[in-house]
């Protein structure tokens, strides 16, 4: 079999394992959908003019951004660290499987889960909470580009991040910092409610840019004035995310280890 076919086969195996692990399905796949539903219900009273901005619409960009982070970065960091510790990587390395096939399998897993999650979010938002779908081809295009770059960056950064810790503690090492990042990046609270200096910190990381890109897709045009620069900065958003994706790929390739520390 050629490498591409093996990559596809790995994708199928990865999807099987992912879907059979209830914790993964809940905490990375369903979590943003659940939170969107919760926030839309809990905060519905605080949005008086629901025609202009409903609670569901307000939180949609953040939940899409959180979903990207969860299905790419969190899934990769946790699964690769675990697979390095439990010997999965060593076992794969002992076969003639080309190493690229392993990574193609991971990419396939993230691609399928994140796209299905995005579609589910859009459908639940539209049908459940009247969140309007992006209007116009340009917004769909921005959605696709920000989403794709965010997923690629999250995947390679997640794989690189997995080398920082062992399976035993990777959960804490991933979930703690990610929670902080989600708060300061305006995922769970309004971006304009985050203090300016924290917004500067958040701007160093990709999540803020994914969330901003998603706001430009789901929010009314006039809300661009609430952004730090007073505009959506679509060009810069794409550039920053592309830089993170490229840098992450370099980091991922240069730090990747097949064996756990101290064994080989």
């Amino acid at each position: 079999m050629n490498t591409l076919a093996l990559g596809l086969d790995r994708t199928v195996v990865e999807l099987k394992m992912y879907s059979r692990e209830k914790e993964a399905v809940f905490f990375s796949f369903l979590f943003p959908i659940l939170l969107l539903s919760l926030f839309a219900v809990i905060f519905s009273g605080q949005f008086e003019d629901a025609d202009a901005m409903s609670a569901g619409r307000f939180f949609m960009p953040g939940m899409v951004a959180a979903g990207v982070l969860l299905t790419s970065f969190q899934t990769m960091a946790l699964s690769v660290a675990t697979e390095r510790d439990d010997g999965t990587l060593k076992r794969l390395r002992s076969t003639p499987m080309p190493p690229v096939a392993y990574f193609l399998g991971k990419v396939g897993l993230v691609a399928v889960t994140s796209v299905v999650q995005l579609v589910t979010l859009l459908v639940v938002g539209r049908l459940g909470f009247d969140v309007p779908l992006p209007d116009g081809g340009r917004r769909w295009l921005v959605l696709a580009a920000v989403f794709a770059l965010g997923v690629v960056a999250g995947t390679v950064l997640g794989i690189a991040y997995s080398s920082l810790s062992t399976a035993r503690s990777i959960g804490a090492v991933v979930i703690g910092p990610m929670l902080v990042l989600q708060f300061i990046s305006g995922v769970y609270i309004g971006w304009q409610d985050v203090p300016d200096w924290l917004r500067q910190v958040a701007a160093l990381f990709p999540l803020k840019w994914i969330a901003q890109g998603m706001r430009s897709v789901f929010y009314p045009q006039e809300m661009a004035s609430l952004e730090m620069a007073g505009s959506w900065e679509t060009g810069r958003t794409l550039l920053v995310l592309a830089a993170w994706a490229a840098g992450g790929l370099v980091l991922c390739v240069s730090t990747f280890r097949w064996f756990k520390r101290g064994t080989v």
């Binding site: 076919a5 086969d9 195996v13 099987k16 394992m17 999965t88």
Partner: peptide, 21 residues
């Protein structure tokens, strides 16, 4: 020890491994 296979079946693991050869 081959860890990390708990969620699969022997047939699934063997089939995907066999494809590498």
């Amino acid at each position: 020890s081959s860890g990390g296979l708990d969620l699969l079946t022997p047939r699934e693991v063997l089939r995907t491994t066999a494809r590498c050869y």
